[in-house]
Amino acid sequence: MTTTTLTPASTDVAGPRTPAMSARGLTLSHAGRTVVDRLDLDVPAGQVTVVVGPNGCGKSTVLRGLSRLLRPSAGAVRLATDGAEADIWSLRPKEFARRVALLPQSPPLPDGITVVDLVGRGRHPHHTLARRWSAADDDAVARAMHATGTLDLADRHVAELSGGQRQRVWIALTLAQETDVVLLDEPTTYLDVAHQIDVLDLLRDLNRRDGTTVVMVLHDLNLAARYADHVVALREGRLVGCGAPADLVDEDFVARVFGLGSRVIADPVTGSPLVVPAPTHEQTGATP
């Protein structure tokens, strides 16, 4: 590069970077029940963070706390992107929506909507009363659709797409939002294994290319270990451990988080930790 950039090129700075989002003492309650209890959590900027844990451990609730869908009963979440640091609840809704996007687990699909129209909904935070749709919006939608490989589907009805294509379209919507942080709640649910890998590859590519900070909840510990730069493990609403998968995921970790006996070996394809569960009943797997 010959051009001089005066922007703070954050990645080149040695030492710990400011996390894109950080929760301190975050307590989230639902219907009077504390689901997440005094959680301290950092989301490293420009990395892929995956939240794992057993069913009902509060993974999705944490995502709701990070995305302002749930107001904390105690503690706070701070957002530090674009060089501006603030409590997420101090921002106006649209301002927050220009900085953090969320893809919920299975959002309702509007009647009769086409792909391009649905992706275009992601541009709402960039509109004002006076400034509605503009060329910049066409550009952002085109980029999001190109990145997710959905351009060819542009005028199709979303309802007639396959599950994998549909998920790409929803991801395109969150990308069209053009935020620094993208949160995804189980983006691989209802997808077969090939489409799971497809979606996760897509998300990692986006992270590597644009530096988008990705946080997702995943059920599958092996996929988490394979795609995460940073794993956050929860159990019963409390943090059990966090760090790079290679440092974190071992047999003891699996036992502590899931209460499951296992062997952890190196994945022959990627080298990341691969959890091979031990049988939970004596007889299984030991047929004479």
């Binding site: 090129a9 990645t11 066409d138 952002a140 085109a142 005028d155 992270n207 644009d210």
Partner: peptide, 20 residues
């Protein structure tokens, strides 16, 4: 990873979006 603004989309892609 860099924080550089992404390059604009190809004009053919933008046309396609507009038409759709």
């Amino acid at each position: 990873a860099t924080a550089v603004a992404p390059a604009p989309a190809a004009s053919s892609a933008v046309d396609r979006v507009r038409r759709a």
